[in-house]
């Protein structure tokens, strides 16, 4: 009995569970015709992705993922869809079955090639020399979960960080310019 419990809560098994839920709900999200349903599947995708982050011991990232994406942004999406009353649109809007099949075949072939690649990836030099779990554990102990993210964000990646600010400003200005009532 204990061994089954251990197996069910082992990292390997949980990883496959979360991965399966992520991929399954992502597929469901793009195939549902009802916008509300596909949005809820997207929430499921994001939430199970957060589970994978937890397995990687990126707890801070997982919390952010839940709070910002699954929590705030997706709920806003849901509000917008319901307010605009888009939930009753069950018409089929994807046309061309042949193209859909073609797209799935191409995507599947790519996934196969990538899977083959990742199979032997540990042998690659860049992965052998990459920061292993020990390095990350040491960093976490030294700086804490937030510090490990904040430190590079404001030093090495400060340009990207500031640029993201401008990006958000541009997006807000653009959205307001297009959406305000009186021009």
């Amino acid at each position: 009995m204990d061994t089954i419990f251990e197996f069910l809560f082992s990292r390997d098994f949980l990883f496959y569970v979360f991965s399966g839920v992520t991929i399954g709900s992502a597929l469901a999200m793009v195939t549902r015709k009802n916008p509300v349903a596909s949005l809820l599947f997207m929430v499921a995708t994001l939430a199970s992705l957060a589970g994978i982050y937890v397995l990687f011991e990126a707890h801070f990232l997982a919390a952010i993922q839940i709070i910002v994406y699954a929590g705030a942004i997706m709920v806003l999406f849901l509000f917008v869809i319901m307010l605009l009353n888009l939930g009753h649109d069950y018409q089929k809007d994807l046309k061309g079955g042949a193209w859909a099949i073609f797209a799935f075949v191409v995507a599947g072939a790519m996934a196969g090639v990538l899977a083959r690649q990742y199979g032997g990836i540990e042998a690659l030099p860049i992965y052998r020399d990459a920061h292993g779990p020990q390095v990350i554990d040491a960093l976490l102990a030294e700086q804490g979960a937030v510090g490990v993210m904040a430190h590079p964000l404001f030093t090495d990646y400060v340009l990207a960080f500031e640029l993201t600010g401008i990006l958000l400003l541009v997006a807000i200005v653009g959205a307001l310019a297009l959406a305000k009532r009186r021009v």
């Binding site: 401008i166 541009v170 200005v173």
Partner: peptide, 13 residues
């Protein structure tokens, strides 16, 4: 990528 997005979003609007 960020530069591309700053440019593109401005142009979309």
């Amino acid at each position: 990528f960020l530069g591309l997005e700053v440019m593109s979003i401005s142009i979309y609007a």
